[in-house]
Amino acid sequence: MPASMVNSAPVRAGGEEALRKYVAELVGTFVLVLGGVGAAVLAGERIGFLGVSLAFGLSLLAMVYTVGPISGCHVNPAVTLGLLLTGKMEGRHALGYVVAQCVGAIAAAGVVLLIARGAPGGYSAAAEGLASNGFGAASPEGYGAGAAFLTEVALTFLLVLTVLGATDARAPVGFAGLAIGLVLALIHLVGIPVTNTSVNPARSLGPAVFVGGAALSQLWLFIVAPLLGGATAAAVYRTVFRPVAPITATTAERATERERLERIEGQARADSPARA
């Protein structure tokens, strides 16, 4: 076999693995925005703040166990930043993750808008907001920019710190999704009246692309504040928790190899004919 073919094999394998991670992030973010923003736009009047909060939390919980073993299920540039700063992900994948997350969020917001337009009387994203994030007149309860910024920083800090702690080497294996999904639901219960809750630049970008106006002009806050919150969570984690052995979020969110083998062996014994 030519040397060039031998040398290119690891490169191709690495590229395929990276692509799998990016597609997983795109799909995970798509589901998060479809579930959360879709619930707010299509069913918000029926399910209220609590229902929308649960929709976001349950969407993330499902994706942690679905795409988490492939990419770690960041589905959020602020989470990617926090994991990058704590050594829980490879830096060469960070930009690809963020691009995939933004594409997934925009695609999901577009799908929600298409569905909403099928309602009697149609739907105008510019007039009705498409569950976009905002402050001042664009805030659900009229909160100003200062309150919105502080809310987004604090709530993103809580989200990213939970992700970092739940994926720590000392955390119980396989339970990260529960903690992360539940904390996202809690965060939305607090933040929806203030900003409609972002804590995720990709989630804010998706609807803003279709809404335009204030949603786009105020987008800077929903990029800067979550990233600041994520970086602060990373600093606190590295200082207070003092990770003994950093492991990737992907590793932490899947069962251990031994547990998988035990399940496979147990199933094989159950399926095999009883011996005389």
Rank of each mutant, 00 (worst) to 15 (best):
L178R: 01
A131T: 02
S8Q: 09
P2T: 11
L26V: 06
G191Y: 04
G44R: 05
A125C: 09
V11W: 01
P140E: 12
A39E: 05
R203V: 09
P226D: 02
G177A: 07
A138Q: 11
L60R: 01
G229R: 04
A43E: 01
L34Y: 14
L54V: 11
L159S: 05
M1L: 13
Y22P: 11
L216V: 09
L95F: 15
V111C: 08
R12H: 04
G28A: 13
E152R: 03
L26T: 08
R238K: 15
A202Y: 03
F30P: 04
Y237N: 11
L164W: 10
G35A: 03
M89G: 05
S71Y: 05
V112A: 09
S272D: 12
A3E: 14
V211G: 03
T232V: 12
L32A: 01
Y237Q: 09
E90M: 11
T162D: 07
A252M: 03
R263D: 11
L221Q: 05
A107Q: 00
V163C: 11
G266E: 13
A276H: 12
G82S: 05
L216H: 01
D271E: 13
P246R: 13
L186V: 15
L161S: 03
F241Y: 15
N196L: 01
V183L: 14
P243L: 03
F175A: 04
Q218V: 05
